[in-house]
Design a protein around this nucleic acid. Structure first.
Lengths: 146, 146
DNA sequence: ATAGCTGCAAATGCTTTGCAAGGCC
DNA sequence: GGCCTTGCAAAGCATTTGCAGCTAT
């Protein structure tokens, strides 16, 4: 069997091109470059502005509008997850698994909460026909001003 | 002892004027009216726009900018609490005690979660000099589309 | 060929700000 | 009177959109 004809459903994390294809997104120059910036490393939390800046300084010619478009397309495709911690700015997280966040409000810094953070919840009684989509937990922290 | 000279530190919930004074905020016509709208009832979740609309339809002449100003002053004074559930819109909660929220994203509806929701929280190890300000929990829900 | 993308600039929506006029102590 | 407030309009910011031109398949 020719390996080149083999279509795996388990893609290595670094097979960005394959992940785009699986998501039904054309690997255009800009999209592929953005996806590589985002998905090749470990967990990252980015804003559109920040990703745009990274892209530009990496020599990728892309507009901010395209960055926004792609961030949303990635999110819809399940490659990213949106995190709401601050009104007025949107963060995207490359870690799409269930986990919680720590937010340094004054610095605008978002981090994953360590796995040693435990919050036990008992879902409340919900009205008829209401379904939980997800439960978001944000630990708001600040540095001592010594 | 003349009752009128008595200064209580425990104000009835409906003593809006006293609460403003305690907060060091002048009871101007607009501020007092907004405070009454907000603080006289039970728990409420409002946006600036919504409060402005309530005020106008209650016959109170007030500008949107003033509503924003006052919402922030109330928040700083501890009379309100800001709730972040959606980027692009700010909610204010008249319930300043520790509790969590349920959010109907598609409707923009925010509600308190029952107090039995969070059972136990074990905070993570934090870096040196980092302090927890608060832990926010948002249950994102949606209605079945039957 | 054609459906999908991109870039630009303009538009949007919420929120903030500057400043002159007005109101509370 | 003096300082805080208000109102209006303009500015600000992050984000979205319209549309002509480009590009992957």
């Amino acid at each position: 069997m020719d390996i080149s004809t083999h279509t795996s459903t388990v893609r290595p994390y670094t097979d960005v091109l394959g992940r785009l294809r699986d998501a039904g997104l054309r690997p255009t120059r800009q999209r592929l470059a953005l996806a590589r910036l985002l998905l090749s490393g470990g967990g990252r939390h980015v804003t559109a502005e920040a990703l745009h800046a990274s892209a530009i300084s990496a020599g990728i010619k892309v507009s901010l509008a395209t960055v926004y478009n792609n961030l949303h397309q990635f999110t819809t495709a399940g490659l990213l997850r949106e995190v709401v911690v601050d009104s007025g700015i949107t963060y995207f997280d490359t870690n799409t698994t269930e986990h919680h966040h720590m937010y340094y409000e004054s610095e605008g810094l978002l981090e994953d909460a360590g796995s040693d953070f435990v919050i036990e919840t008992k879902l409340p009684e919900l009205p008829e026909g209401v379904r939980v989509k997800c439960v978001d937990v944000v630990i708001r922290v600040e540095r001592d001003t010594n």
